[in-house]
């Protein structure tokens, strides 16, 4: 096989959660451009229909399934819908995520729990549902964050702890499933990418962070983050499992 073909996802089937906005749309688009059919999950179906058009414009098929990943049965339904439509699930991108930026002494326990529910339990329920139907050669990509390994001046106890948990989850699922099921499990750790979440940052915060903490000196472009996902999903990464891949412009060196 020519080396360039190792990066192709032609005829594969990918599930992307949180696919109605931000990185989720970029992941769906990049997976489709690499040749994969994409199953789109999110709570907001209006956003999903826009993503569906993005996937179809790239020339592959899209399926929209309204999904709240905090319910295990919803995750099972999403995987089942993918199997029914396409007969296989090769790739899962666990992108659904939420965050808060509240000082810890004022943090509402219910809000903290909500972050863990979506980011950690949601990722686990989706991985569980997909691993039950995935064949050897499949790939799961979890969304960690640089905030799983460092801090960045904002109060992020809930988000950071959920993303640190993703690192442990990724390693353990890799250990459990790579040998027994042939499923590779990896995580990426994005740095600063312009999304709905970063739009909520205080004025000037992002510019200051880029200046002080990002050696490459600019925020990432969404397709640069998506490129890492396509790589980990592809056969070019077939000897990679259990890793955390930072896509952060060097933030973790600071």
């Amino acid at each position: 096989m020519p080396i360039a073909d190792k990066f192709s996802l032609h005829d594969k089937v990918a599930i992307v959660t949180g696919a109605s906005s931000g990185l989720g749309v970029a992941f769906a688009q990049a997976l489709a451009e690499a040749g994969a059919n994409v199953v789109l999950g999110a709570r907001r179906t209006d956003g999903l229909e826009a993503t569906q058009r993005v996937v179809e414009a790239a020339g592959t098929k899209a399926l929209v399934v309204a999904t709240d990943v905090t319910f295990p049965e919803a995750c099972t339904r999403l995987a089942a819908a993918a199997m029914e439509a396409f007969g296989r699930v090769d790739i899962l991108v666990n992108n659904a995520g939420v965050g808060t930026a509240v000082p810890a002494t004022r943090e509402d326990p219910a809000e903290y729990r909500r972050v863990i529910d979506v980011n950690l339990f949601g990722s686990f329920y989706m991985a569980q549902a997909c691993a039950r139907v995935m064949k050897p050669g499949s790939s799961i990509i979890n969304l960690g964050s640089v905030l799983g390994s460092t801090t960045a001046d904002l109060p992020q106890a809930a988000y950071s702890s959920s993303k640190a948990a993703i690192i442990g989850l990724t390693r353990d699922l890799a250990q459990q499933w790579t040998g027994r099921k042939g499923i590779r499990v990896n995580a990426i750790a994005p740095g600063f990418f312009p999304t709905e979440m970063t739009e909520q940052f205080p004025p000037g915060y992002m510019e200051e962070m880029i200046e002080r903490r990002v050696p490459i000196g600019r925020p990432g472009q969404l397709e640069e983050c998506a490129a890492a996902v396509v790589f980990l999903a592809s056969d070019a990464a077939s000897y990679i499992t259990g890793i955390l891949l930072p896509v952060d412009g060097g933030l973790l060196t600071t």
Binding site: M1, I3, K6, F7, G191, P215, I216, G220, Q221, E224, C225, A227, A228, V230, F231, S234, D235, A236, A237, S238, Y239, I240, L245, P246, V247, D248, G249, G250, L252, T253
Partner: peptide, 22 residues
């Protein structure tokens, strides 16, 4: 061999342009 080449090509290509220090 392709496992090694694949990662090196990823890092050397447009796809790897926002990674440094990894």
């Amino acid at each position: 061999p392709d496992d090694m080449a694949g990662t090196a090509i990823f890092l050397a290509s447009r796809a790897g342009s926002y990674l440094t220090g990894a």
